[in-house]
Computed example of a mutant assay.
Amino acid sequence: MFRPHRMLSLCTVVLAGFLTACGGAEQQVEDGLGTASAELESAGKKPAMIVYSLKGKVDQDGFVSLGPPSGLGGQVLEGNPKIYARIDYARGPVAAGLFKATKGKIRIVFPFTEHATIMEGEVIMTDEAGNTHKYKAGDSYFIRQGQVILWEVKGKEVIKSFFNTVEAQ
């Protein structure tokens, strides 16, 4: 069962990319970088600025598996896609970080409102109206919570930076 409020407790992503509800992912994410800034602040230290750069490869340290796409409200249409996230900031209904998805096609009802920028790879997204766009490194998009999107990664993987919020329903 899809529960947007649980997504918040997971401190996730990423389609994420993408954040919500599967039992085992909650502990994995909270034990990852999602709590790093809170730990630094409680120790009286300010967290360092995080730079997401298109120059060079994305640092993939700290990525954790989010489980199957169905845990975020996704329905796999092709392939065997895997999804991962690194949460660099999470407070209340807001989360930011990196999201990675491997090759495959997913239909997803976006469980949050999101602004994202593709860092590596490419993804083809199609909305309910049939508008299709191929996003590559440097491209950004904005999607509102509840929109239905076909998300298709044709290459090995896509990595995006994201900033999202779960809206009250």
Rank of each mutant, 00 (worst) to 15 (best):
S37D: 11
T35K: 08
A38H: 10
F63C: 11
I118P: 00
L19M: 10
K46L: 13
L54R: 08
A21D: 10
Q27R: 09
F99Y: 14
K160H: 07
K82N: 07
E78F: 05
E30S: 13
C22V: 09
A116H: 01
K55A: 14
K105Y: 02
V148M: 10
Q147A: 15
E122R: 00
E167W: 06
R91A: 12
Q169S: 08
S53Y: 14
G34M: 11
F99C: 09
M125R: 04
Q28M: 12
I149M: 05
L8V: 13
D127T: 03
V76H: 08
S65W: 13
G44L: 09
M1I: 01
A116F: 12
I143R: 05
E120K: 08
M125W: 02
G121T: 09
D127G: 11
S42A: 14
V148N: 05
A137S: 06
A95F: 10
P111S: 14
S65M: 11
V109A: 14
K136F: 03
S161P: 03
Q60P: 00
E39S: 10
P81H: 05
G97Q: 12
V158S: 02
G155P: 01
T165V: 14
S42Q: 10
G34Y: 09
S53Q: 15
V94D: 13
G24C: 07
K103F: 05
T126W: 01
T165Q: 11
H5L: 04
P93K: 13
S9Y: 04
N164W: 04
I87S: 15
E26A: 11
Q60S: 15
V14P: 06
E122I: 00
E26G: 11
D139N: 03
T113K: 12
T102L: 03
